[in-house]
Design a protein around this nucleic acid. Structure first.
Length: 285
DNA sequence: CCCCAGTCCTGCGGGC
DNA sequence: TGCCCGCAGGACTGGG
């Protein structure tokens, strides 16, 4: 499930196409339902043909393919979307083909097994609105400790649920929220407005620590094998998960407690009931 | 403001 | 062996 580290790995993977020109954007023959795309494929084709790609950016879990005329092609992989420079894992579920010239790669593909992903073409003005901080929060790797606390500390929601809300901080999903709160030694059920200043500092530190490490390992490829980088290769961070999907296994830190799974906002939360207590700041040696 | 349930979708694994 | 069902969850929406 692409979250910030996986999307950043995809972004870096397709960065070599900067400087190339778009020849065409087409939907491959695919008997699956087309992914959500706006505006129409015909209009996208019309507005992008011959345009040079000036930069590959990222905001939270979205990839931004920026064109020379300030238009932005926003790719949202969501659960199973992949951006690829090579042949996809399977020939079906190929949703979009972007043919290029003036580059070593003659195309970029968007492949999405479940088809929940989206592709949008925004004008420069639209991009300023849609990507403005009112709609999506600051990127999780850019947010400062003070900004994080300002954004969330008055909320009464559980901190795990609040971290998943992209309006506050962009890029954290279910897997990394669990790993972040584990490293920060914070109970995921704690209300934001009950967190102490040191706890916020630990969460902020854990956000950059976990996400940076995950990027270094090129993201997490889970057992379903869905996520891969732009060259269709597995990530490696799944070997370093400490709590995610590890219910029933001993905590790697205290080795006494057993990792628990609970449900918050209809999503699985994994945590160590010993290391991540609400009074966590008092038990550290 | 926040919460909850429903929506999209496919593949997988548990239970029988 | 096969079939059904539930689960996985990112983003969004409508109702309370």
């Amino acid at each position: 499930m692409p979250e910030l580290p996986e999307v950043e790995t995809m972004r870096r993977g397709i960065e070599p196409i900067v400087g190339s020109r778009i020849v065409s954007i087409t939907r491959p023959a695919c008997n699956r339902r087309p992914i959500l795309i706006s505006p129409s494929i015909a209009e996208i084709q019309d507005r992008t043909t011959g345009k040079r790609i000036s930069r590959i950016g990222r905001r939270g879990k979205r990839i931004l393919i920026e064109l020379e005329d300030l238009q932005v092609l926003v790719v949202e992989p969501r659960m199973t979307g992949l951006v690829l420079l090579v042949e996809p894992p399977t020939p079906d579920h190929l949703r979009l083909r972007i043919a290029l010239t003036d580059t070593v790669h003659d195309e970029v593909l968007f492949w999405d097994r479940r088809g929940l992903g989206t592709v949008r073409l925004l004008s420069g003005e639209e991009a300023a609105t849609v990507l403005g901080t009112a709609k999506i929060g600051r990127d999780a790797l850019d947010i400062t400790a003070n900004e994080l606390r300002d954004q969330l500390s008055s909320s009464r929601r559980a901190v795990k649920v609040a971290l998943l809300d992209q309006k506050h901080v962009a890029g954290i999903g279910n897997l990394y929220a669990a790993e972040i709160l584990y490293l920060a030694e914070v109970d995921p059920r704690t209300r934001c407005d009950r967190l102490s200043k040191p706890q916020w500092a630990r969460i902020h530190h854990a956000i950059s620590e976990v996400l940076t490490e995950a990027i270094r390992h090129e993201g997490s490829t889970l057992s379903d094998g869905t996520y891969r980088n732009a060259l269709n290769e597995d990530g490696g961070y799944q070997n370093y998960h400490r709590v995610y999907d590890r219910a029933g296994l001993p905590c790697p830190r205290c080795e006494n407690a057993i990792i628990r799974r609970i449900v918050q906002a209809q999503r699985s939360t994994f945590f160590c009931p010993h290391c991540q207590r609400k009074s966590g700041r008092f038990h550290r040696s």
